[in-house]
Design a protein around this nucleic acid. Structure first.
Lengths: 220, 220
DNA sequence: GTATTTATTTCGTGC
DNA sequence: GCACGAAGTAAATAC
């Protein structure tokens, strides 16, 4: 990893055209070949960057970064270099995550009666021609129920579930199939659309499903 | 801006829970208060980060970064600090962009006959109760045409246009309204769905519309 | 301020 | 390798 602090201007030509006027910035050159240009705000997002694979040519005061496949170009005009250092970091063991949609799906599948007494799981990721239904289950009367799970329930999710339902209801072995839209939080517009299409909405309590009391003060 | 190279392990508790084992990394502390932890690959994306506003407490070998509003926490356990430097960058003049969807819409409105001879523009951003139709125009026969523009045409765009068409066709002054899905690139699935719904697909040539020959060798 | 849409989205996963 | 869905999405824009 190479860290350069320099007064520079930058021009990008590729998927779009963009220009950065002359100013002091951080230029971050990683071992993977990527280049990113940071200012002192915008959190972790760089002002401009180039993804690998790319080639860097340093030519007098002009650095040209060219993407090896698309031909995109990043041209840095260097005015003054204030800092330039290199560091060996090695390969990173990487990030372990927890708490995303996959986990919500696992938890709801384990506690399918959250949707109502007598519910039974058919299977998770039930494949159809247009994609996997998150959860397929049956209600207390034995009727098929398709569940779409989102962390945040928006209109797109309702559309997605609608397409699945349309398809599933063509299958005489499954029909009639009811829909349930389950999310940690459901936007009002999504709720209206779901209701209009006869889809039930369920708000999921992640901590409750996980068995951790939400009022647990050790988290956060 | 402060640049620290250190062997550290990181724990994040907030919107999700995540852990980074001990390894050498870059810790980037910006003047806006943000903290991001980079390894030597993954291009410009950090392994972990904290957005402003947040507070950093350095306590022996443990750095605790706490988000001031949500209470999210990033805990860095520092093993060895290999580099630590500070740099004044000042406020950045910022990025000037060109070439996004708004520009595509302008260009297509200016060259509406791209859709066919005799086409005439009614207006851009034609407002409806459920949102603005990108372009409303009439074909050579005087029939109304609603155009949805995307940079990359996917299934969501077809759904969106479908909702507009359904609404517009309830207006006796406009009906019957035909749909055109225009994008620089249209995904096969979106094309199939559009066809199925009687919506025409048009692939836009950005450079052609802009009046620059696509074979111009100075770009890229 | 809330809701919607875009993004040089990036990133993972299944086929 | 391509297509689709999710993201600690973030950011801009419309309402």
């Amino acid at each position: 990893m190479r860290l350069v602090i320099a007064r520079c201007s930058v021009d990008y030509v590729g998927r779009l055209t963009a220009h950065l006027p002359m100013a002091p910035r951080l230029i971050l050159i990683k071992a993977d070949g990527s280049v990113s240009i940071h200012c002192d705000d915008r959190a972790f997002k760089p002002l401009n960057w180039m993804n690998p694979p790319c080639k860097i040519r340093e030519d007098d005061g002009t650095w040209t970064v060219t993407h090896s496949k698309t031909g995109e170009k990043l041209i840095l005009t260097m005015d003054e270099i204030m800092h330039d250092s290199k560091h060996e970091l090695g390969v990173d063991p990487g990030l372990q995550k927890d708490g995303v949609e996959a986990h919500l799906q696992e938890l709801l599948a384990e506690h399918i009666t959250t949707l109502g007494a007598g519910y039974t799981l058919v299977r998770r990721e039930y494949m159809t021609a247009i994609g996997p239904v998150d959860i397929l289950c049956r209600d207390q009367s034995g009727a098929t129920v398709a569940v779409e799970i989102k962390r945040r329930g928006e209109i797109d999710g309702v559309e997605q579930l609608t397409r699945y339902l349309e398809l599933l209801n063509r299958d005489p072995l499954l029909a009639p199939v009811r829909g349930v839209f389950a999310a940690q939080e459901i936007k009002p517009q999504a709720k209206v659309l779901a209701m209009d299409r006869g889809i039930d909405c369920v708000t999921l309590d992640y901590d409750g499903l996980r068995g951790i009391e939400p009022e647990n003060p050790t988290l956060f």
